[in-house]
């Protein structure tokens, strides 16, 4: 007799662990990017790695761990609202910076050496 329920529970826990690990990698990379990049727009891009990808991956992990269909349905509703609200917040920041005349740095860039003053 195979314990299917136990196997399913184990698979869900493994999936949630993998997703949480991926989310923490994205969150750390996004935070590092905010400090490494030079100009507000590129920093906003790096922070979207934390704000979008990491949060969405955590939501996927909580979907994998949800105990009942009712809870899973609510997580899906939260995901749908996140799909709408998160880009709106990023867009508001970028739009305000663009409308207020902040010039984005363009062209190929490489991070300067340590100690060099960055703009």
């Amino acid at each position: 007799m195979i314990d299917w329920q136990g196997i399913a529970g184990l698979a869900r826990e493994i999936a949630a662990t993998v997703l949480c690990a991926a989310a923490s990698v994205f969150a750390i990379a996004g935070t590092v990017g905010v400090f490494r990049f030079a100009d507000p727009y590129t920093r906003l891009q790096a922070s979207s790695l934390t704000g979008t990808t990491a949060v969405f991956t955590i939501l996927l992990a909580s979907l994998a761990l949800s105990p009942s269909v009712a809870v899973a349905a609510r997580v899906v509703v939260i995901m749908v609202f996140f799909l709408i609200s998160n880009p709106t917040a990023t867009h508001i920041i970028a739009r305000y910076a663009w409308k207020s005349g902040l010039e984005p740095a363009t062209g190929p860039q490489k991070r300067g050496k340590r100690g060099k003053r960055r703009p």
Binding site: V25, F26, A29, G30, V32, G33, R36, F37, D39, Y41, T42, Q45, A46, S48, L49, T52, T53, F56, V80, L83, P104, A105, T106, G107, P108, Q109, K110, R111
Partner: peptide, 29 residues
């Protein structure tokens, strides 16, 4: 549509992750 969107999000997340690690970007408007 959500599956298309999430797949696109993870694909471009990997690219941004790579450019955060290398520090090489080419921003344009």
């Amino acid at each position: 549509y959500p599956f298309v969107l999430v797949a696109a999000m993870y694909a471009s997340s990997a690219k941004v992750l790579a450019s955060v690690v290398t520090g090489r970007v080419n921003p344009r408007v």
